[in-house]
């Protein structure tokens, strides 16, 4: 498989639960709230080690978020952990009113995000979360690309002054970052060397980033230069980084594990248009259709969210660009 070019790390899910154990050890106010999701969240060891710092709600996601907001009002550092699909659909009103609007800094953790659940189908996919949460004021949105970004995002979340939503999947992720890389919520990380002349800008988030990175390497062999941005924060949106990438590139390809409507790509496109930067642009994601049945990888391949698919998308865009 194409992942072989990069060193494979753990799953972001495992890294999340490990990091949470460290945080809970240091701070007794760190709480985890679950909805029959402790197994899926790899939090069984957490529950055994810190029985006083885990609150089980049962299969009741609305209650999960409401209770979390109440706990947060007492200064508890609350991680509300449940599948991204149920958290951001069923409990959306609790996120909107009890968390975001009332400014209770709950850390809403969407596990098995995007199409991680594969052939379990649409009830279990979260292809709407970037979109709905972007339309709600006062909640930051983060999709870490690898283990490093996950650790950093979880650590940063503890003292984050605002509500925050962090989502990730359950497949092992390759390590993308050199040691010592700076991470800050709201600041994109560029994976390729800085330059003022790229052919292609890949702007990606979450578990699609390494696929964009591999595509950039394949394109480099053809003499095509790329800028690859890990835009882990959909909000705060890093305007400077996106502007730099787009202005210095001929074409822009955005990539996300999300519906093509209302997600990262839409955000990038509307920002660039309004900034007066016009580049041929493709939004790669899950199209607005009944999602094909398959594993996460099969779904990605079906919709060209793969090294090959992304390389081809970029090449087509470049060809069109050179013709016009």
């Amino acid at each position: 498989m194409s992942e072989n070019h990069l060193p494979i790390g753990s799953t972001n899910l495992d890294i999340f639960s490990k990091t949470l154990m460290e945080l809970a050890e240091q701070d007794r106010d760190v709480l985890v709230v679950t909805s029959d999701s402790r197994g899926s969240g790899k939090l069984t060891p957490f529950g055994e080690k810190f029985p006083g710092q885990i609150v089980e709600i049962g299969i009741a996601e609305q209650n999960l978020v409401g209770v979390s907001a109440g706990l947060a009002s007492y200064g508890k550092k609350v991680f509300a952990v449940s599948p991204a699909s149920f958290l951001t659909a069923r409990a959306l009103e609790q996120i909107k009113n009890d968390v975001a609007y009332s400014n209770r800094p709950v850390k809403v953790i969407g596990i098995s995000a995007g199409v991680s659940y594969g052939s379990l189908g649409s009830t279990h996919h979260s292809l709407h979360d970037f979109s709905v949460l972007q339309a709600i004021n006062n909640i930051d949105i983060v999709a870490p690309a690898d283990n490093f970004e996950t650790v950093q995002a979880i650590r940063a979340a503890v003292h984050h002054p605002r509500p925050i939503y962090i989502r990730f999947g359950k497949k092992p992720m390759p390590d993308l970052h050199a040691p010592g890389t700076h991470f800050e919520i709201g600041k994109a990380i560029q994976l390729t060397p800085q330059s003022n002349h790229y052919d292609v800008a890949f702007i990606a988030s979450g578990e699609t980033v390494f696929r964009a990175y591999l595509a950039s390497q394949a394109l480099a062999e053809k003499g095509i230069t790329c800028c690859v941005l890990s835009l882990h924060s959909i909000r705060p949106f890093d305007e400077d980084a996106v502007l730099h990438a787009a202005v210095n590139s001929k074409v822009v390809v955005t990539v996300e594990e999300h519906c093509v409507n209302g997600g990262l790509g839409s955000r990038v496109a509307s920002f660039l248009m309004q900034a007066g930067v016009f580049r041929p642009l493709r939004i790669v994601g899950i199209p607005d259709e009944h999602t094909v049945t398959g594993s996460q990888v099969e779904i990605f391949q079906h919709y060209s969210i793969s090294q090959q698919g992304l390389s081809q998308t970029a090449l087509h865009l470049l060809e069109k660009e050179s013709v016009s």
Binding site: S119, G121, G294
Partner: peptide
């Protein structure tokens, strides 16, 4: 399986 109408729900 890939492309099937018989999904897990």
């Amino acid at each position: 399986t890939y492309g099937s109408y018989f999904i897990g729900h």
